[in-house]
């Protein structure tokens, strides 16, 4: 059972995702689109963590406070958090790649307007 805390976080995460999507779909500037995707990414991460969060448990770090024997019942499921870590890194990679694209595209056409890159179509 998730806490209301997690519920709020999750709700906020979904709102961020929607805001991000909205931003990506309405802003024609490449950089703005990337910003929007960043926000959506953050939202995804929040949702991920929120789903993994369970009431009354501690962080998934095995130290003296949490004996190994009790780990499974006392700590928060570590898997989602591991996923988020991976996702953040991948997200960075993707963002960096998109920024590199934006840069190159700007060098090529001197514009950042996505609607100007439509030579390939149909």
């Amino acid at each position: 059972m998730m806490t209301s805390l997690a519920h709020w976080a999750m709700a906020a995460g979904f709102v961020l995702i929607l805001i991000g999507f909205y931003g990506a779909l309405t802003n024609r500037n490449l950089l703005r689109m990337i910003v929007a995707f960043c926000i959506a990414d953050t939202g995804v991460n929040i949702v991920l963590v929120a789903v993994g969060h369970m009431r009354g448990r501690t962080a998934p770090i095995l130290d003296s406070a949490v004996p190994v024997a009790d780990a499974v019942s006392r700590i928060i499921d570590p898997v989602p958090q591991a996923l988020v870590l991976t996702a953040i890194v991948i997200g960075l990679g993707v963002t960096a790649m998109m920024l590199a694209y934006a840069l190159k595209l700007y060098e090529k056409k001197r514009t950042l307007d996505i609607a100007k890159f439509t030579e390939l179509k149909w």
């Binding site: 805390l5 997690a6 976080a9 960043c38 990414d41 953050t42 991460n45 963590v49 929120a50 993994g52 969060h53 448990r57 501690t58 962080a59 770090i61 928060i76 958090q81 988020v84 870590l85 953040i88 890194v89 997200g91 960075l92």
Partner: peptide, 15 residues
């Protein structure tokens, strides 16, 4: 707050 300190650190640094 959601008890994910390592994620928090990563997000702060990277995000």
């Amino acid at each position: 707050v959601l008890a994910a300190p390592d994620v928090a650190m990563t997000e702060a640094a990277i995000g």
